[in-house]
């Protein structure tokens, strides 16, 4: 018997798709760093808490993930001397894109002496997900930025794999107006097939990059390498030009996350935001 094929999900109309974001200006007050201005659009929010005396912002996506065509803009500026940590409430799910890719634009601006720990939780890409992200940083020569981005392909616990999709991630870090670090991650098309290749993923399903840009970054390389000594996933750290970089790669997203969390806590010198452990 000839069974009818299930109809493909129709792409949602454009007007349903979310365009939004959060703009935050952080300044210094007598009681430490605090948000001076917050502008929220679409389904995106930020909630500030004080954690161990530090200003900590947690992003929430009330839409529960990113779908094709969604456009998310996160803008953060830190006044001179401001210090804060920003994270997300949960791992961000990126769903199958029917039409356009989801786009995410991050712009971070750090004034003299400012310090930002940019610690979002991982992106989880579903089969057919397409995400194009840009991260642009402008920072003063003596500012300090610790940032991480992690991506997971499929939910391991659900037995999912991602055969096709796209992740494009463009980082441009300017310190004192000079471009000091650029990264263009481009994983497009046969994601599983590319990740299986020996020089690409070697079978990995999760990856993460940590970057520390700080006057003392290169002095931290030995400590970072020592911290990776007992990591259970493939990982390495190195330093150059006032920066420290560490990379993680694993077929097991849970092990990668555990190693990454330990490493970030050591590098930042304080416990990770609570949302990381829930």
């Amino acid at each position: 018997m000839h069974l009818p094929r299930p109809a493909a999900d129709p792409a949602p109309p454009r007007w349903i798709r979310a365009a939004g974001g959060v703009r935050i200006a952080l300044g210094t007050t007598a009681r430490g760093t605090a948000p001076m201005a917050i502008a929220e659009r679409g389904g995106y929010r930020v909630r500030f808490v004080r954690a161990s005396g530090r200003c900590e912002g947690v992003y929430l996506n009330t839409g529960g993930g990113l779908a094709g065509g969604d456009d998310l803009a996160l803008d953060v500026s830190l006044a001179p001397g401001a210090a804060a940590t920003l994270t997300t409430q949960a791992a961000e799910k990126v769903y199958r894109a029917q039409g356009d890719a989801a786009t995410m634009r991050v712009a971070l601006d750090l004034g003299p002496g400012a310090a930002l720990d940019w610690l979002p939780q991982e992106q989880i890409l579903f089969e057919g997900a397409r995400l194009h992200r840009t991260i642009d940083v402008a920072m003063a020569a003596d500012a300090r930025l610790l940032m991480v981005e992690a991506a997971v392909f499929g939910r391991l616990a659900m037995g999912e794999t991602v055969e096709t999709g796209a992740l494009r991630d463009r980082w441009r870090i300017r310190r004192d107006r000079r471009l000091v670090f650029a990264e263009d991650l481009r994983l497009e098309g046969g994601v599983a097939e590319i990740l299986a290749r020996p020089a690409c993923g070697g079978g990995a399903r999760a990856l993460a990059t940590v970057l520390l840009v700080s006057p003392d970054a290169e002095a931290r390389v030995e400590d970072a390498r020592a911290a990776l000594g007992d990591a259970s996933v493939e990982s390495a750290a190195g330093g150059f030009d006032g920066m420290l970089i560490a990379r993680f790669l694993s077929p097991d997203p849970r092990r990668l996350r555990a190693d990454l969390a330990r490493f970030l806590a050591r590098l930042s010198g304080r416990p990770l935001p609570r949302s990381w452990s829930t």
Partner: peptide
């Protein structure tokens, strides 16, 4: 059009240092 996905080659570049 810039873009790369040679993650293990990049990891190896760091590991070669030690």
């Amino acid at each position: 059009d810039l873009g790369a996905a040679a993650f293990r080659a990049d990891l190896g570049a760091l590991l070669h240092e030690t």
